[in-house]
Design a protein around this nucleic acid. Structure first.
Length: 305
DNA sequence: CGGATTTGACCCGCGC
DNA sequence: GCGCGGGTCAAATCCG
């Protein structure tokens, strides 16, 4: 397997597929972020935590060079407060999952060689994705759902493999990819794809009730819990020894207006690595008190007011 | 023994 | 057309 040191040319490294998940940040469809809107987060770029990645400018450059229309997403001020600058891949043709299933049964009749079925001309559809970065010791964050690992691939330019997980629930097509950032091995990039069609098998009912109370139509509490899993973990829902930090930038802190019901979820856990506040002062106060994000954010960001 | 994980092979899309 | 790399499959293996 090809490996490169972290000191490779920035643009080459960033532009490589090893950062494909970073680009996936741009593939988030607004509808998949319904729970974010529920949380009052309209500036989705705020959740893309590149503050700990030193080469975000290069990423932006790459996005720009490649004509990616989402280039403004990363660490940029939104054009408007409610800007939905994040583009979507949902315009692609519908998935051919069913065709694939049929073809696979045909494949089983091929005894000599494992030949994959021929796909139709339809372009493979990507479910809406939501990606975020967490600072965590463990790769696979507990998020209340059960996942079956179905693959692992070496990532070009990265010493860390990428793992592929699928929700174990039948008829639920949600997938997630987990990989470590090679620029910061302590950072785990998790990408969710799709929405759960079932409630979390592990999520406490009280938590579900708290989250689900204000969910907009079409957004399941399960999906919310899933996609926001690491936040739940960072909060008090899971009192696990490992600690995760959601990486956010100062835009996030300034634009997040979390509803009180989410604040209540956090409660008083001492293990909370990140909590929600309704305004910047509250956030700043929290940071100064608990300060875990200080490990991530440059000091000038934290002081900004 | 059944479910989860590992891992090599294969498919597909994309760039050259 | 070819090669590369991401994504997926499925047999083998592991593990509780």
């Amino acid at each position: 397997m090809e490996k490169k040191e972290m000191g490779v040319k920035t643009e080459e490294a960033i532009g490589s597929s090893s950062f494909s998940s970073a680009f996936d940040f741009c593939e988030v469809e607004k509808s998949s972020l319904g729970f974010m809107e529920l949380l009052g987060v309209h500036d989705y770029s705020a959740l893309l935590g590149w503050s700990s990645i030193p080469d975000s400018s290069s990423i932006l450059k790459h996005l720009s060079d490649t004509g990616n229309e989402c280039s403004e997403v990363l660490n940029q001020q939104p054009a408007t407060p409610n800007s939905s600058s994040i583009s979507s891949t949902s315009t692609e043709p519908l998935n051919d999952e069913h065709n694939k299933t049929v073809d696979q049964s045909q494949q089983h009749s091929n005894t000599n060689k494992l030949l994959k079925p021929k796909k139709t001309n339809q372009k493979r559809q990507r479910e809406p994705r939501f990606a975020f970065m967490t600072k965590s010791e463990v790769d696979h964050l507990e998020d209340g759902y059960r996942w079956r690992k179905y693959g692992q691939k070496a990532v070009k330019n990265s010493p860390f493999p990428r793992s592929y997980y699928r929700c174990t629930s039948a008829s639920c097509n949600v997938k997630k990819r987990v990989e470590r950032s090679f620029t910061d091995p302590s950072v785990v990039v998790t990408t969710y794809e799709g929405q759960h069609t079932h409630p979390s098998p592990v999520m406490p009912r009280s938590a579900l009730a708290g989250v689900g109370a204000s969910l907009p139509a079409g957004i399941s509490a399960a999906g919310c819990a899933s996609s926001f899993g690491s936040l739940m973990v960072a909060g008090s829902l899971y009192h696990q020894p490992q600690q995760h930090q959601l990486l956010v930038n100062n835009n996030a802190l300034s634009s997040m207006a979390f509803p009180t019901n989410f604040q209540s979820i956090d409660s008083t856990s001492k293990n909370a690595a990140f909590t929600f506040a309704q305004d910047r002062r509250a956030t700043a106060a929290f940071l100064s008190d608990h300060g875990l994000l200080q490990d991530i954010l440059p000091s000038h960001m934290l002081k900004e007011e």
